[in-house]
Computed example of a mutant assay.
Amino acid sequence: MAMNNSISLLFGSLLSACVALAGGALAQPANPPAGNYDRVQSDAVLDEASLPEDVRVAIRTASLLARGVRDERSLRPVTFERGVMASLAKPKTTLPGFVADRFGLSAILEPAGGKQGRKLVGTLRFVEEAGRAALEGFTIDYAFTTDAMTVRRVSLYTVMPENPRWMLYFVPKSRASMADWQKLQTWGEAMEAMRALAVAPEQARKEDCWIVLFALDRLPPGGQSQATLDGRAMTVVSKDFAGWPVLFGEAGPRGTGTSVLGVRYGPRPPTPGASAEREFRF
């Protein structure tokens, strides 16, 4: 039966993405009919072990590609049709220190035209101890036999989280200048500087200060950052660290009332599903 309907699965653990792919034969399950997956309910827990082995291997392959692996020898026994690797953009980062902890599948399909194999559409989440996360989308189309898998097409892209997380810091301007911020080379270096220089909001409100926002979730490229402070536009300078932007804005002394900081990231004008907003009160 052709599996031409999209199915929705919850996130499941991705243990296989954290270990080496064993050599030898791949299992060759029959292509399951759509009904096998239709029975997965929206509130069900996705059991990775219940997925066909070729699906698990394909997810793991997508995970390694999302981490920037481009050496086909390290992906064996999976192979790639000519031009597939060349179609992938050079990675900005290999996500050092990150582990793949969750995956989600939005579709398991059979390719059009009667080709043998499957096409998967899903997302992978990578996390690190510092609190950062990356939600990476993938589409992978492949054929497989009892002892091999060949990837025919693959695409990777960063997914906008539904509610991106930001970490807010206040630094007196007497402690740092824009020139100091421009010297920062990595997200981790910027975070170390913040922990050494930041003060409590109550102290920052008494003097000129930097308002610094760290993105904890990786954001899609091409977006623009906008910020408002107490309803007024605030000019921000953004430094992008491989998809995790850090925003620097300036604020003068303020009264004792509550201040409201709004931040929006995304294209202009805002696009549903591609923009996200956050508000802070301090």
Rank of each mutant, 00 (worst) to 15 (best):
E53H: 07
D54Q: 13
G231V: 01
W181I: 12
P245L: 10
A44G: 01
T139S: 05
P245N: 13
A25S: 02
G137C: 03
E162D: 13
A44Q: 05
L124I: 03
S87C: 12
A215D: 04
T271S: 02
F80A: 13
R153Y: 10
M149E: 01
E81I: 09
R70C: 05
G223K: 08
W210C: 00
R281Q: 14
T146C: 07
E207D: 05
D240T: 05
S8K: 10
R73M: 15
V55L: 02
L156K: 05
P220I: 02
T94E: 00
R278G: 14
M234G: 01
N5L: 15
G255L: 00
D38W: 15
L95S: 00
L51W: 06
R56K: 04
L26G: 06
E53L: 02
C18M: 13
A89S: 11
R278M: 14
E277R: 12
P29L: 06
E136M: 13
G249Y: 07
P253L: 09
F138E: 01
W210M: 00
E128Y: 03
L65H: 04
Q28K: 08
F280W: 06
T228Q: 07
A44R: 00
A27M: 05
L213I: 02
P32L: 11
G273Q: 11
E192Q: 15
S6R: 12
A66R: 04
E279D: 05
V99Q: 14
M194T: 13
E129N: 15
G113K: 09
L21P: 10
S106V: 14
N163H: 13
S87R: 13
A204D: 12
S13H: 13
A30H: 03
K183A: 13
S74W: 10
G35C: 10
K173P: 02
A34S: 15
F11V: 10
V159C: 11
P164Y: 08
S8H: 10
L21G: 10
F282M: 11
L46F: 01
W181P: 13
T235S: 12
V84L: 09
R175L: 09
K173L: 07
T271V: 01
P111C: 08
S8P: 00
V236S: 01
A274V: 03
R153I: 04
A22G: 13
L135P: 12
T258N: 06
A179R: 15
L51F: 11
F103N: 04
W187H: 09
R218P: 10
L65K: 04
A176F: 11
R232I: 01
L219D: 09
K90W: 00
E279Q: 04
A133F: 14
V260F: 04
V260E: 11
R82V: 12
R67I: 06
E129A: 15
R153W: 01
S275Y: 08
P220Q: 10
Q203C: 02
D141E: 00
P270E: 07
Y142C: 14
S155H: 02
T146N: 14
N5M: 15
S155W: 06
V19F: 11
D101N: 15
P221M: 14
G104A: 11
P77S: 07
